[in-house]
Design a protein around this nucleic acid. Sequence first.
DNA 1: TCGAGAAATGAGTCGTACACATATTGCCGA
DNA 2: TCGGCAATATGTGTACGACTCATTTCTCGA
Lengths: 259, 259
Amino acid sequence: MDGNPVLAATGSSAPAPADEQDTVAYRPGYERVAEEILRLIAELQLQPGDRMPTENQLASRLGTSRTVVREAVKILSAIGRIRAQKGRGLFVANDEGMLGSSLWGSFFLPTDLDHVYRLFEFRRVQEAAASRLAATRATPADLRAIEEAAETCREGHLTGRRELFDRGDDDFHLSVAKASQNPFLVDAVREARRLQRQSSTIGLHGTVGGHAEEAVAEHAAIYQAIKGGDAEAAAQAATVHLDQTLEDYRREIQRRVFG
Amino acid sequence: MDGNPVLAATGSSAPAPADEQDTVAYRPGYERVAEEILRLIAELQLQPGDRMPTENQLASRLGTSRTVVREAVKILSAIGRIRAQKGRGLFVANDEGMLGSSLWGSFFLPTDLDHVYRLFEFRRVQEAAASRLAATRATPADLRAIEEAAETCREGHLTGRRELFDRGDDDFHLSVAKASQNPFLVDAVREARRLQRQSSTIGLHGTVGGHAEEAVAEHAAIYQAIKGGDAEAAAQAATVHLDQTLEDYRREIQRRVFG
DNA sequence: TCGAGAAATGAGTCGTACACATATTGCCGA
DNA sequence: TCGGCAATATGTGTACGACTCATTTCTCGA
């Protein structure tokens, strides 16, 4: 087919910044298979969320081994087209999860305080933007979800049930993100929270004792601004909330370190 | 811009999209390994284009099997962080190169327009935030990198060399992101651009013909604002740039659909 | 009728073997 | 001495097979 003699210009002239397109495309099988899987999804008219054939079925159907299918699956899930669940199966990805792969913060060192600060900064950007958009786009259902989460959170605080507070807090921020109607922002918010949870020795919310009272009030402020359609106020309220949380976090760290 | 015909339907549709799921987050090994590989690259200070340890070395070093390493590698190469060459080895990807994605380009989901708009919106949030921070944090080296990228881009425009323009544009935005000194923002910007490259049948930059002239000027404006330390101006300039790019993109789509 | 345990299903991990592409070595002859 | 070329070494790609663990389904007995 390709009688292309790959003239390796080894020496001479420019060092050639790496090789742009040398090697006339060898095209590994797993790549071909990845394409075929996509084609198959289209062919079978599978909708987001639908089950896909199992890995073994795909392997035999596409005339290859399970190994290759698995590598193709990894590619497709990395670019957010399908989702794999251990013990369940493969599924066509729903629109969310686009930022996929949870590989953010790869340079994250769990104990590095500077990075913790950067993460808060990141969250502030994301959540302020989400709140701003939510103020002009939230549906009645969105508003209900936000209010309900805020209420859960408040109840957790009043009754001193930490896990209830945390769950409410999580729901609150995610509900706001969803209300922005931007799936990428939802992902960014979710991912940032996941990273923080994972890296923090303290837990996501600093302390319940220190900041919970204000947090409940700040949630209410955010909710009201969104409900009232005041985009700037919503963004401002979210920023304040994150800054307060960071401040609380900072205090907690100091307490642990110094006293 | 919400009067945009493109994005009319914000319709969030069904309130309960199937599985609310997760929380208990089982984290597959290959994902963990993928992270570790990235961490390793940073640790070893490998530069784009450098050779990486072989799959077997990675496997033993990370205390896992080659199978898992391979699946991690597939993920990382799918998101454009590394490159695998049969018979040669693994290499760190050049941050911008990324020609590998041409594979998917045309084949992928022909532009769900609403989706594309959301992606632009996301980029606007990220890059405006990055520019704002860069204005107060950019180091002299950062400024040099930004200026150089802008110059490359300009040169690509003047000489009509599309790929040079694209490379400069990529470099420019990533350099600005890096100048924010926030690694999460860098990731977000990179990821957003990657997604756009993948989902777009048009390419990352709309057209060179249409918008390139203005793009060069807008880049200059962003650079000047950052150099001058004017955070708000930088954010504003970045927002304008993204909006203009979207507008250009929208026109291109219309031309293709109707003209 | 219902709940608990057994079985089946399916992705995740491991190890091995070999195929195939490329890089390096080293021998041979001019 | 030098160039060319075969042998060899390195490393990714493909394939099997076995086993683990999470989830779902089925079955049977109280």
